[in-house]
């Protein structure tokens, strides 16, 4: 399902959680939604799922408005940390209602996932660990097979094997049943290989919306002798520098033209890809470095996203 958001505002009393956000998402892709705590990720997804009404602007999913529109919300699944879909007596009860309320529910797949995550139907949800509750949320989210599926920090409390099981299940099911998936996470490096496109929001505004590879190409890791690295990066936007003995590695934001790349090679420096997390930290720095580093035209997507009001 495609998503169109125009000039979206969400206020909590005096606090503006989402501030004039505009973007559109195409069908059949996995999107990463990144942002610091309190940046507005959960609020944005809650509006997309009809969990709350927006204060202003428009939200359309599949071309239709969302809030209190059963034809649309029935095709959307948002799994949040609050656990609304599983906050009931037993695992069996959670699945009993999911099967009844979800038009595309796949019971056999749900059973398969329960087994994969080591969950039993008779388990009491309230007695489950945080990780088990998260895993049950993932089961409900994936087996719902909703054309727009969103996971908001769904890995919380899950151990590494369970998280890997989630990635594998998500990818396999996405390949078998393509749909629009939005993943919100703080485990950026762990999740980033899943993302086809990334949205970064900060203080309620869209900072970046790009294909993952394009975003990663915005920066370069420069590694070599510390003095040469310092000389090479002088005048460039350096996101961070790490030193190990005489060797330094600097993360540089911005394109390096061929002349600069040649110069680096001649100086014996290695150029490599940077971590998405480094970019994320830079783009959402409270000091406002993002505004300095990201040209206004870069702040929104090249894929049909309206850029008005989104650049910081």
């Amino acid at each position: 399902m495609n998503v169109e958001v125009r000039d979206l505002r969400v206020d909590y009393g005096e606090v503006r959680a989402v501030d004039g956000m505009t973007f559109s998402l195409g069908e059949g892709k996995i999107y990463g939604l990144l942002g610091r705590n309190g940046s507005g990720k959960t609020t944005l997804m809650s509006v997309l799922a009809g969990f709350r009404r927006q204060s202003g602007g428009t939200v359309r999913v599949g071309g239709r408005p969302v809030f209190e529109n059963g034809k649309v919300t029935g095709e959307i699944c948002l799994i949040r940390d609050a656990g609304e879909t599983i906050d009931i007596d037993k695992v069996d009860d959670a699945l009993y209602f999911a099967e009844w309320l979800r038009p595309r529910w796949d019971a056999a797949y749900a059973n398969e996932l329960l087994e994969r995550f080591g969950l039993r139907r008779k388990m009491s949800v309230k007695a489950m660990s945080k990780g088990q509750r998260s895993a049950l949320g993932v089961v409900v989210g994936l087996a719902s097979r909703s054309p727009l599926t969103m996971f908001d920090e769904s890995y919380l409390g899950m151990d590494a094997p369970s998280r890997y099981a989630f990635y594998d299940a998500l990818l396999a099911d996405f390949m078998a049943h393509p749909r629009t998936i939005i993943l919100s996470t703080h485990l950026i490096e762990e999740y980033s290989p899943l993302f086809e496109e990334v949205m970064i929001i900060d203080r309620g505004r869209l900072v970046v919306r790009e294909e993952s590879q394009t975003l990663l190409a915005r920066g370069t890791a420069v590694t070599g002798p510390a003095d040469r690295v310092a000389e090479f990066t002088a005048g460039l936007t350096v996101l961070n520098t790490r030193r190990l003995g005489p060797t330094a590695s600097a993360t540089v934001y911005g394109d390096l033209d061929e002349a600069r790349r040649r110069k680096a090679r001649e100086a014996g420096l290695e150029l490599g890809p940077i971590a998405m997390q480094d970019l994320f930290v830079h783009l959402t720095e409270p000091s406002g470095d993002a505004a300095r580093a990201v040209p206004a035209g870069d702040a929104a997507a090249p894929h049909g996203a309206d850029q008005s009001g989104d650049a910081r």
Partner: peptide, 16 residues
């Protein structure tokens, strides 16, 4: 407390 959030989270409207 239990079923209103459950219903909405499963895509039902408040009216439903």
């Amino acid at each position: 407390r239990e079923f209103l959030p459950l219903y909405i989270a499963h895509g039902q409207t408040r009216r439903q």
